[in-house]
C-alpha cells in the first residue's frame, strides 16, 4: 500500500488528485470555493453561448444565399447545444437550471461582453465567426483539460464543433474581400469594429485579474489571460494578410526579439463600461432573453401537464390490469 492511500484528509486527497491530473467528479469532495468558482465560470460560459445566438440570429433571415443561411442556422443551433452542455455540467455542482436562468435574467450573472455589440452588416457575421469564435476557441481548447470532469468533457464536445464556426466566418470575409469595392469596404469595416472587443474577450490583463492565480492552481485555467491574448494576436495578424485587410492597430508590429506581435494599448475603460451594462446592446440582449423565457412559460407548463396526464393514465391502466 502506498503512503497516499492512508490519507484521509479530504483537502489533501483533493490537492493530490489535482496535482496528479486526476479529474474531479461530481460526487468527490471539493473545496467550497472551487465549487463556487466553477459554478460562476461554467454558468457564465453557458449564458454566453445562449446570448451569443442573438447577434447572429439577427442575420438568419437576411443571409445572402441559401448556403449561407443553412450554415448560419447550423452554427446558431450549435451554440444552443453548447449552452445546454454547459448548463448540464454546472448542474452537477448542485445548482438548478432555473436558478442559473434567474441569475441571468436578473442581471446578477454575467455573459461575455462581446455579445453586447451590434451586428450592423452581413460582414459582421464573417467577423464574428473568424474573430469571436476564434478567440473563444483559443480560450476553450485548454479548458478541455480542466480539472473538473464534467466541464472538461463538455469542452471537448464544444471544441469539436467550433472549428466549422471559425472557418465559415473566414470564408464569408474571404468572399467579401474578393468582391466589389463596397464589399471590400464592408469587410474592413466589420474587422475594424470587431477587432478590439475580440482582443478584450480574454479578460483583464494578468495584473488586474486577482482570481486567475487560484484558478491556475486548481487547474481550471491552464494559461493566463495575457498569454492567450498574445497567441490570438499572433495568429490573427498573419491570417488577416490572406484577406488583404488590416487590423485597426497602428502599433501592431512583429517583434523579432520576443518573436511575437507587439500591439497597442487596450481601452479598458470601454471594457468595464460594457461589463457594467453600458455597452451598445446590453439592455436589448437581456430584454430579448427575458421575453423569450416568459413567452415560453406556457409551453413548459403544458409539457409538464401533458406528461403528468400521461403518467396518470398509465397508472390507471396498470391498476385496471391488476384488478382484472
Amino acid at each position: 500500500m502506498t503512503a497516499g492511500n492512508a490519507n484521509t484528509d479530504p483537502q489533501e486527497i483533493f490537492d493530490d488528485k489535482v496535482a496528479r491530473e486526476i479529474r474531479i467528479e461530481p460526487k468527490d469532495w471539493m473545496p467550497d470555493k472551487y465549487r463556487q468558482t466553477l459554478i460562476r465560470q461554467i454558468s457564465q460560459h453557458a449564458h454566453s453561448e445562449i446570448v451569443g445566438m442573438l447577434p447572429e440570429g439577427n442575420w438568419i433571415t437576411r443571409a445572402p444565399t441559401l448556403r449561407r443561411k443553412a450554415t448560419l442556422i447550423a452554427k446558431v443551433q450549435d451554440e444552443a447545444g453548447h449552452g445546454l452542455y454547459l448548463y448540464s455540467a454546472a448542474e452537477t455542482l448542485n445548482i438548478s437550471r432555473d436558478e442559473m436562468l434567474a441569475q441571468l435574467h436578473s442581471g446578477k450573472a454575467k455573459y461575455s461582453s462581446i455579445f453586447n455589440y451590434p451586428t450592423l452588416t452581413w460582414a459582421d457575421i464573417g467577423a464574428i465567426g473568424w474573430l469571436v469564435d476564434g478567440a473563444a476557441i483559443m480560450n476553450q481548447v485548454p479548458l478541455c483539460r480542466a480539472s473538473y470532469g464534467p466541464y472538461a468533457r463538455a469542452m471537448v464536445r464544444i471544441c469539436k464543433e467550433e472549428s466549422f464556426h471559425q472557418r465559415q466566418g473566414f470564408e464569408i470575409l474571404l468572399t467579401l474581400s474578393r468582391g466589389s469595392s463596397p464589399q471590400r469596404h464592408m469587410c474592413q469595416d466589420a474587422i475594424n469594429r470587431w477587432w478590439w472587443p475580440s482582443v478584450m474577450m480574454f479578460g483583464p490583463s494578468d495584473d488586474q485579474s486577482p482570481h486567475s492565480a487560484q484558478s491556475m492552481a486548481w487547474k481550471i485555467k491552464r494559461f493566463s489571460n495575457d498569454e492567450l491574448r498574445q497567441k490570438f494576436v499572433d495568429v490573427c495578424a498573419e491570417q488577416v494578410k490572406l484577406l488583404g485587410m488590416t487590423l485597426p492597430d497602428k502599433d501592431l508590429q512583429w517583434n523579432a526579439t520576443t518573436e511575437h506581435y507587439d500591439f497597442g494599448p487596450i481601452n479598458w475603460q470601454e471594457f468595464w463600461d460594457v461589463v457594467n451594462g453600458n455597452g451598445p446592446c446590453n439592455r436589448e440582449r437581456l430584454e430579448a432573453r427575458v421575453k423569450a423565457h416568459e413567452e415560453g412559460q406556457w409551453v413548459r407548463d403544458a409539457a409538464i401537464a401533458f406528461a403528468a396526464k400521461q403518467n396518470d393514465s398509465i397508472r390507471k391502466k396498470n391498476t385496471a390490469d391488476v384488478a382484472a
Binding site: 447550423a74 443551433q77 450549435d78 447545444g81 445546454l84 452542455y85 448540464s88 448542474e91 437550471r97 468533457r153 463538455a154 464536445r157 464543433e161 413548459r300 409539457a303 409538464i304 401533458f306 406528461a307 400521461q310 403518467n311
Partner: peptide
C-alpha cells in the same frame, strides 16, 4: 454522453437527437 431536461421520455429522446446527434 451527457444529460438534458425534458418533460417526458419521448421529449427526452427528441431533444437528445437535436443536442447529441447533429453530426
Amino acid at each position: 454522453v451527457g444529460s438534458l431536461h425534458a418533460a417526458d421520455a419521448a421529449m427526452a429522446i427528441e431533444n437528445a437527437r437535436d443536442v447529441y446527434t447533429r453530426r
